[in-house]
Design a protein around this nucleic acid. Structure first.
Lengths: 147, 147
DNA sequence: AGGGAACCGTGGGTCCCACCAACGTAAGCA
DNA sequence: TGCTTACGTTGGTGGGACCCACGGTTCCCT
């Protein structure tokens, strides 16, 4: 028999392993795509969330995208430095910063969304539309175990 | 209106995002489980591969599990230090190390495999057996785009 | 009204994973 | 024989996720 160089290796069938591998490929594809605009995945995610939520505090932003407040500081710093969002102290609650997307941020977001979509298309190129939807549904149930 | 704190946020439907989240949860669950035996995911994967492949070089090991040779060195060091594998110079090719699992390694592997399976069961607890198989099939096609 | 609890933003740091560059040694091939 | 390739090892970079602690602010309960 021809070789098939490496044995199937029991772990290759474990969901956790496959998820790790698939996520790594997805991350690589998306990161490469977004790099064309000088963005990273988390920056894009945060920018996207800001666009959807309107003026919002960093803490709430962190909760929606599920990242540490500490890391959010650096991301918002970067986005602000590039003029993609504005960070103004909230008049009603002076603990908060009101983060809002700028016009330039919206333009950037439109481009990065297209890049991200293209990368995701490549990531799931081997799947039919129906299978892609299936995958999304299954993953959604995995990531939200409590709901 | 009741709140539903965060908007669906467009990115939450992207495969790459969901994969990252699901992988993070899977990694956390498995890592916690394996920590009971003082093992990490990559150590378990390598040990598993060694058990399947028999005496094998580090380079081939790295190819099968898909990790950097540099990282493989550290992992084999750890496994050897714990007496789970043996690393002997290959007589036929003196560049290579022949890595082989030890009796203690086999015992450890049996335990970590059970722990890993349990963690994966919890990870996919929301899915039926059929759905789990579906997920594995879909992920497999994503991680091996060229085949 | 007062005081403790909770929360926000920020800085400190840790751990794990992925990847790249280089080098000495050894094998394979022309 | 010399050239090319491969193996193992050391060095380092960077991103992602996570945790702790602090000062400032607001909320809530008594």
């Amino acid at each position: 028999m021809a070789d098939t160089p490496y044995a199937p290796s029991r772990i290759r069938a474990l969901p956790s392993w496959l998820l790790g591998r698939a996520a790594a490929r997805g991350h690589r594809l998306v990161a490469e795509a977004l790099a064309a605009e000088g963005m990273r995945m988390m920056h894009h995610a945060v920018l996207c969330a800001v666009a959807e939520l309107g003026p919002v505090s960093q803490a709430e932003l962190g909760r929606t995208v599920g990242i540490d407040p500490k890391d959010m500081v650096a991301i918002v710093n970067d986005l602000q430095k590039d003029g993609l969002v504005t960070r103004t102290p909230d008049a009603k609650d002076r603990r908060k910063n009101a983060i809002e997307i700028s016009a330039e941020g919206k333009r950037r977001l439109r481009r990065t969304e297209r890049l991200g979509d293209a990368a995701n298309a490549e990531l799931t190129a081997a799947l039919s539309d129906e299978e892609r939807a299936q995958l999304v549904a299954l993953l959604t149930r995995i990531v939200t175990p409590g709901e």
